[in-house]
Amino acid sequence: MTDRLMHHALPVAVMALAIVLIWYLGALWLNGPQVTDALNRSGQDWGMREFVTQAFTMRRPVLPTPDQVAVELYTSMTSHPVGHIRNLLYHTGVTAGAALLGAAMGVVLGILLAVGIVHLRTLESSLLPWLIASQTIPILAIAPMIVVILGNIGFSGLLPKAFISMYLCFFPITIGLIKGLRSADPLSQDLMRTYSATGSQTFWYLRLPSALPYLFTSLKIGVAASVVGTIVAELPTGGQAGLGARLLTGSYYGQTVQIWAALVMSAVLSLTLVALVGAAERLVTRAHGGRR
């Protein structure tokens, strides 16, 4: 137990502490010039003490301190009712909804493509290279445009954002699943043949279960990617709702504390979704007689 503590918890704790320390020092350094200006203008004598308190409590700091961000997180979640537009949880909910819808669409598309590519040779040789090339295209960069175009056709709200999430999400799933569907043990495949199982039986009883670990690993990557996609897609909607809109309004009005709070919230959202996928993985592998 102590060994485990020394090996894992301690380095992480020290590193986290170091980051917090650097953060505070950075706040001093980055906020310093403005604070010095303000204090000089006030005309009073000031020393180190006033300088530090000023630097850590600025209203629009260049770099807010961790405690300022924590306070902003707390107030933005409690000062208005949960469904209110000024509540951070509302924006998180909007982003989470679009990200989940996009991830769901991405999973469906990813599975369809993977199954098609595994079963049709023509598709593998002609489509797969383009799928790989499609991911070297910075789709995130054109995300805002897709939102605008879909908006012109009449799709607005959740769907354009989900569409971009889907584009980011499907690829890891397709690639992981292609590998997974081909990972069935040849011995087991021979066994299925001796049972004279049909193609679809082999698929449902052997190939799909053996692909599940691969599916979940890719799903974790895909879900994290879909959150990123949703946030970027929210940028051009011009401050309506969502964590991306929060980032944008924060940057327009110089509300750095709000940006950092939205940033922390998006990290929490992303980690929560990944953890949920991990929990689902444990449930499913246990139901399948969990070898892991």
């Binding site: 994290a224 970027v232 964590l243 980032l247 940057s251 939205a262 980690l271």
Partner: peptide
Amino acid sequence: AVPVIGIAPIMVMW
């Protein structure tokens, strides 16, 4: 796992 891209507005500010 974290949307690092979100730091973009902060970097532009700095």
